[in-house]
């Protein structure tokens, strides 16, 4: 097998990994600050794709790219304030179960509204075609996905590290009681983080739509991938999730090349290995409330 085919698949894996990173980052944020294992994360991802389909029919792809994540975030705000808020003080298991029920209901509601078969979602005109870099051929769209993901990741990083909102979030992941003793109310921050987290999932959904299609089961399919990434990268670690997302993308790209049937299974095996050997992942921190 020529080396450059391997490299090409690895690179492709990286490109695909980039929107996984966006998805997983959202999940990790909700995990770290809210303490919630969001099993409905895939549902928000799917919702992002579906909303994008609706918006792009009227306002084009770029409109969808901008508006769909916002729509998903808005729905996230409503759910957090009405329902999730009651569960923070309880056993984390209860919130996990709630998000599980939400995932169930959400997938079905997608079927109800848009039908059980997939929706067609082509690559937008402006981004079709290939770009040639030496011997390598890349689809323009995938490079665009990489660019948007990079912007999103960078934006998150800036938000978390250069704004006072981010300061409160970072402090709150370690000692929420002390944050309150400094005069800062945490509940609006929790709502905002949940909205941001699911908004990122929606964004990943929009980006994946032309690549993987839009169908009701897309949420559940990608959910385990998102968990694998967060677990490998480590809870509470920003860059850990980024590296893990790219790693998972590359591993997938390679296994698809060498032994396609094992592609998914290898990912889950990796997750099992990490959970058994080093549950806090590559770069994560210890969260006692999860143990």
């Amino acid at each position: 097998m020529p080396l450059f085919v391997i490299l090409e698949h690895m690179a492709n894996g990286l490109l695909v990994g980039s929107y996984y990173v966006v998805l997983a980052l959202g999940l990790s944020l909700i995990f770290s600050l809210g303490g919630v294992v969001n099993l409905a994360h895939g549902a928000f991802y799917a919702l992002g794709a579906y909303l994008a389909w609706e918006v792009q029919r009227r306002l084009g792809f770029f409109g969808a790219l901008a508006l769909s994540p916002l729509g998903v975030a808005a729905i996230g705000v409503v759910i957090e304030r009405l329902c999730l808020r009651r569960l923070y003080r309880e056993d984390p298991g209860l919130a996990l179960l709630f998000t599980f029920g939400l995932a169930m209901a959400a997938e079905q509601s997608l079927r109800l509204v848009w039908g059980a078969t997939g929706l067609p979602f082509g690559i937008p005109e402006a981004l079709r075609g290939q770009i040639f870099l030496g011997d390598f051929i890349y689809s323009r769209y995938r490079l665009a996905v990489l660019a948007v993901s990079a912007v999103a990741v960078l934006g998150c990083w800036l938000l978390l590290n250069k704004t006072s909102f981010g300061l409160v979030v970072r402090a709150g992941t370690r000692d929420p009681e002390m944050v309150r003793a400094l005069g800062i109310a945490l509940s609006p921050v929790l709502t905002a983080i949940f909205a941001l987290g699911v908004g990122l999932a929606g964004l990943a959904g929009v980006m994946s739509a032309p690549l993987a299609g839009v169908q009701p089961a897309m949420g559940t399919e990608i959910l385990t991938a998102a968990f694998v990434i967060v677990v490998i990268g480590g809870l509470g670690s920003f860059w850990g999730v980024v590296y893990a997302g790219l790693l998972v993308g590359v591993v997938r790209g390679l296994t698809v090349l060498f032994y396609p049937p094992a592609a998914e299974a290898s990912m889950y095996a990796l997750m099992v290995l990490v959970l058994l050997v080093r549950p806090r992942g590559l770069m994560g921190e210890r969260f006692e409330r999860f143990e």
């Binding site: 996990l96 997750m271 099992v272 959970l275 058994l276």
Partner: peptide, 17 residues
């Protein structure tokens, strides 16, 4: 070998695998 949420995630990973 793990407890709480990690235990649940492990069972999920096994089931998916």
């Amino acid at each position: 070998r793990r407890r709480g949420v990690y235990f649940s995630l492990l069972t999920l990973a096994f089931a998916a695998m």
